[in-house]
Nucleic acid binder design. Structure first.
Lengths: 139, 139
DNA sequence: ATAAAAAAAGAAACATTGTTGCAAATATTT
DNA sequence: AAATATTTGCAACAATGTTTCTTTTTTTAT
């Protein structure tokens, strides 16, 4: 049984064409994907609603996580190991390349600790770096 | 001449009702505002397009800056001093309160330094903390 | 203060993005 | 293989954002 099916089953998701295809897109992409990227890559073979629901269920199950942006387009990327239903643990930095426009998870760069005044409570820290990615820097 | 007009003039923006009103909303708000908040606060007294254009011109001039979010709704907040046309310098942490939903600039908390592998170039670091704000913590 | 020039606002039309309810199709369980 | 549960696609809708063009307002120059 291939790994895509395995991931879906492990997360109690029934195995459908749409989920298989969308999950494989994430597995074969080294960057983050937006809803529009998925529509493009599947040539609108699936209904837009299906894509939304698939992404939502993947987020719920801890298969992918969202990346905040400043341009009204949520990006999604694969979670690594320890994420699961109801708990995400993606403590890495995200890079938005200002040259190619792609967004990457820098899995080896952990989010720095942030210290806030006592009156605040920290639940999660998101770090998004704008800069130039590896391949744009070394063409 | 009141400070709102002063700010607009300093930035070579002609002084119009819309800009005055929207800028005053920012000056009188302690949190960040989304487009929808502005529409609500102005009771749709201005055309939606005007609001979009006003926000855009304020960002361009360095009067306000955008705050990335994970839910497809850009938030805007006043820049402090040194921002100007073409260069923003908002090196502070943003807090999204998971209780009241508001977003705040923590002007006294500077963004931590992030170190990336040599292959990358850093241009800007955005830090968004999800947590609980001052007033929700001490009601 | 007024006329000319420049800038911005408003309106309409359109494009994109996201949501909800429901019937048909597909996957899973027995 | 049939029964059940889940997912899909469709339709309709709502919200968000953009573009073009005309009218109005603001600014500049007289």
């Amino acid at each position: 049984m291939d790994s895509i099916v395995q991931i879906l089953k492990q997360n109690n998701l029934s195995v459908t064409d749409g989920r298989r295809k969308i999950l494989s897109l994430f597995l074969n992409s080294n960057g983050a994907l937006a809803h529009a990227d998925i529509e493009k890559n599947t040539h609108s073979h699936f209904d837009r609603v299906t894509v939304y629901r698939t992404l939502q269920s993947f987020v719920d199950k801890g298969i992918i996580h969202t990346i905040p942006t400043s341009d009204n387009s949520i990006k999604y990327a694969l979670c690594k190991d320890e994420c699961g239903e109801g708990h995400h643990h993606d403590h890495h930095v995200h890079l938005v390349c200002t040259r190619c426009g792609n967004t990457f998870c820098l899995d080896n760069v952990v989010t720095p600790t942030v210290k806030l005044p006592r009156e605040y409570t920290i639940q999660q820290v998101e770090v998004v770096v704008k800069g130039i990615c590896k391949s744009c820097n070394n063409p």
